[in-house]
Design a protein around this nucleic acid. Structure first.
Lengths: 237, 237
DNA sequence: ATTACTAAAACCCGAGTAG
DNA sequence: TCTACTCGGGTTTTAGTAA
């Protein structure tokens, strides 16, 4: 076997077995499962499941106590480290994948919302810049939109507080933004601070997002429809 | 093959191959790698690596363009979904593993810090309760301390702002806390809001954490040294 | 250099069964 | 019932090699 906790071809079957075991973990890192049940979980026979458990014990990823012919399985520190390592690696991979958007025409609803005084006055303080009164529309492919959603889930939004307009009696709800950095794909070194307007509330096709920034981005980056921009999220938590 | 994106024994070798490929991803979800290099990455022969790539293409997890006998590999939406799914499952697993601590004697430095007026006055507002002027020490085993660290990494701390004491000319730094919920392991239904004092700054053995709560927890839970408590973190982001 | 076919070797799984 | 052994058969890997 290779380095401690490393997953290699000799043991990725075992890694997968550990992963399935962990899905059934209960209080105190304990799992109650027979080799027959474990076999069903893995889509494998009782015999192979039993062998897997012994492999995992040998790897020191789990411990077992047999009481009255039934086994209690406990995750060890090494075992939980293996799971943590994979989790961290996946997190890194997903975070390192650069998200790309394609410039689309139109300013859509974003421009309207940005201009409303009750919102606009909060931008300087909360985003760190006074945005251009319009948004840039970026289309993301389905790979990118999924990754973006997951990244946004793990990010704290900038909340632009809602308010009541006493003249029109209209109520304006909270607006959510996410800090980001934008650059041209053909010149990734020239970056600019920007913000993504919350994608949940827009009426768009679901794979279009709206970007806020201080300058008019089409001029700033000399953009035409179809140009590609890199969207980096600040993962500075 | 089973459900879309599901990893089963027929394809966890392929899943692992995809995972290794993703570690080498570059701009625009593209990977440049030969079958020889990929074989080395997987600790497998060039022939098997080549077959894996074809398997991944058949699974629609990647696409490939061959130019001048060299291949460019691009992750598909399905491929990134597979990675995202595993990431989310691991996240769930790690979050669902309950962290246990064992009651230890002593109040240590925590008690001193809690009592300092400059800090104490902030607790009501920031933690939602005025803590007992002492901390409960919990010892965590190495599995639990690792999991806790990872969970805290993904949590927003409650910052108790530092201040300057004009009498003693001493400067008191920021103190970090994390909201949590405590219960006896033998009665997990009776819960109480509490906070973990930042574990990084204490001079403790590294597997001891300090808990703040409104009541004197030893009385509240009728605790003696060695009793076990469940520590739940608020993952309500 | 590449990728990938074929065929033999190595490996793994599960049926039968023991404890 | 449980877990886990042996061993035959099927699957996967790799060496050799072609394109």
């Amino acid at each position: 076997m290779s380095k401690e906790g490393e997953i290699s071809p000799e043991n990725y079957a075992n890694w997968f077995a550990l992963y399935q075991l962990c899905k059934h973990i209960e209080h105190r890192q304990t799992i109650n499962i027979s080799s027959v049940e474990f076999g069903k979980l893995l889509n494998l026979s009782q015999q192979t499941a039993s062998r897997r458990i012994n492999d995992l014990i040998e790897l020191k990823w789990i411990k077992r106590k047999i009481e009255n012919k039934t086994q209690k399985i406990v995750l060890t520190k090494e075992g939980s480290d293996v799971m943590l390592l994979m989790y961290k690696n996946l997190k890194n991979i997903l975070e390192s994948i650069v998200i790309l958007g394609t410039v689309q025409n139109g300013m859509k609803e974003g421009a309207y919302y940005v201009s409303i005084k009750g919102y606009f006055d909060q931008f300087q303080e909360k985003l760190g810049f006074l945005p251009y009164k319009g948004t840039l529309n970026l289309e993301l492919n389905s790979t990118n939109i999924n990754l973006l959603r997951e990244k946004l889930n793990n990010l704290k939004p900038v909340v632009i507080a809602g308010f009541q307009d006493n003249n029109s009696e209209r109520t304006y709800g909270d607006v959510y933004c996410y800090d980001c950095i934008i650059s041209r794909i053909d010149n990734p070194e020239e970056k600019i601070n920007a913000a993504i307007l919350d994608i949940k509330r827009t009426h768009h096709k679901k794979n279009i997002i709206e970007i806020l920034a201080e300058p008019y981005l089409r001029d700033y980056f000399n953009l035409k429809d179809g140009d590609k921009l890199i969207i980096e999220l600040n993962i500075n938590r």
